[in-house]
Amino acid sequence: MGVLNSLQVDLGARSYPIEIGQGLLDGLGDGLKPLLKGRQMAVLTTETVAPLYLERAQASLTAAGFDVTPIILPDGETSKSWQALNQVFDVLIGARFERSSTVVALGGGVIGDLSGFAAASLLRGVNFVQVPTTLLSQVDSSVGGKTGINHPLGKNLIGAFYQPKKVTIDIDTLRTLPRRELLAGLAEVIKYGIIWDAELFARLERDLDAFLALEPTVVAEVIHRCCAIKAEVVSADEREAGQRALLNLGHTFGHAIENLAGYGEILHGEAVAIGMVMAADLSHWLKLCPGNDVARIRELVERAGLPLHAPKHAVEAYMDAMSRDKKVEAGVMRFVLMRGIGSAMISSDVDAAVTRQVIEAYAVA
């Protein structure tokens, strides 16, 4: 029990620690006390997470001297909306929050994104803390400061870069995570291996069963490696002006899949898994990536229990949805492509006809 791994996201005066371990919810308040001047705090969570972890988190924070206001929202992508954001603002403003106050995100990526955007916007910025409870949020969305909400025309189109004061990852929360959610988070873990670390990818091939059995040492080490990769990328490119876009492998296809399916019908990680396989195939068709690496990616995604094919829609519907991706520049789609496992690149020089062929292979209506 306790902290198993830790690291620092290096952003100068806005640097912050990430702690990974077991039973960390019970020490949450003591861990935050030295970092925060204000005592006023809101804990944003969901209807599913609240019965599991809110009481423990609130007890720890209260014992450390914080005045806690819980805010419980519905589960799912519907909470990444203007309506939910305004509900949060109503509570925070009604509670007379000040700039020294803190918003704590207790939950998955949706709560983290919404909470961070609320913290970034209220009074032009209050303190923000991430306590991610899903695998996807622990390895990806809780680190790096991306916050925001969805728009009916696209995912994550409205938001801000806003860094937390701390990220506390209690891997014990994964034991109550539905199997489907755990597998969806695994897609983001696989992504780090593909874009950055061939050894991580090979470890997942070797230790997948132990990871899915939630063996603590394996889980903590893999999460630490994913966070370390993201911390390195974010420290070099906080606002996605360059290499941070590599973290979006599979997301150009994936966001279009989510949009066309209707947010919440397909989990984000599931859409990313399909998108990564499509991006790998696109890379192979463009003669960038060896066919053997594409086969290894498909095999690992399939072994992880993740989908390989997208919902059936017209090719032009996918192309239109992808044209609204936030990586588009001067009206041109940019893709994260592979040179092979462990090496990725960003390209805007992709023949639309080849892109259509890949869509046809995976998602023809």
Rank of each mutant, 00 (worst) to 15 (best):
G2Y: 13
S6H: 07
I18L: 14
G21M: 06
D26K: 05
G27W: 03
G31H: 08
L35I: 10
R39S: 14
Q40E: 13
L44T: 09
L44Q: 00
E47Q: 14
E47W: 07
E47C: 14
T48L: 11
V49F: 06
L54V: 06
R56G: 14
A57E: 07
A64E: 12
V68C: 15
D75Q: 12
D75C: 08
E77A: 09
S81C: 11
V91E: 15
L92A: 09
A95G: 07
A95Q: 04
E98M: 12
R99Y: 04
S101C: 00
T102S: 12
V103G: 02
V104G: 04
G107S: 08
G108I: 03
L114N: 10
S115P: 03
P132V: 08
T134W: 01
L135C: 11
L135I: 12
V139H: 10
S142Q: 05
V143Y: 06
G145E: 03
T147R: 01
P152F: 04
N156T: 12
G159M: 00
A160T: 01
F161N: 12
I169E: 05
D172T: 12
L174N: 06
L177H: 09
E181M: 07
A187D: 02
A198T: 11
A198N: 14
A198I: 04
L200Q: 09
F201E: 12
R206V: 01
A213L: 14
L214D: 15
L214A: 11
E215N: 15
V218W: 05
V218C: 15
H224A: 15
I229W: 07
K230N: 15
A231Y: 02
S235G: 15
A236I: 02
E240N: 14
R244Y: 10
L247M: 12
G250A: 05
H255F: 01
A256R: 00
I257W: 01
I257N: 05
L260E: 15
L267H: 02
A271D: 06
I274V: 15
V277H: 01
A279C: 06
S283D: 14
L286E: 10
L288T: 12
C289Y: 03
P290G: 04
N292P: 00
R296V: 03
I297V: 09
L306F: 05
H309S: 11
A310N: 11
P311V: 10
K312I: 10
V315G: 04
V315H: 02
V315R: 04
Y318N: 03
A321V: 06
M322R: 01
D325L: 04
A330E: 11
G331I: 09
L337G: 07
M338I: 00
M338A: 12
I346H: 07
V350R: 02
V358S: 01
V358E: 00
V358R: 00
I359K: 10
Y362N: 13
V364A: 11
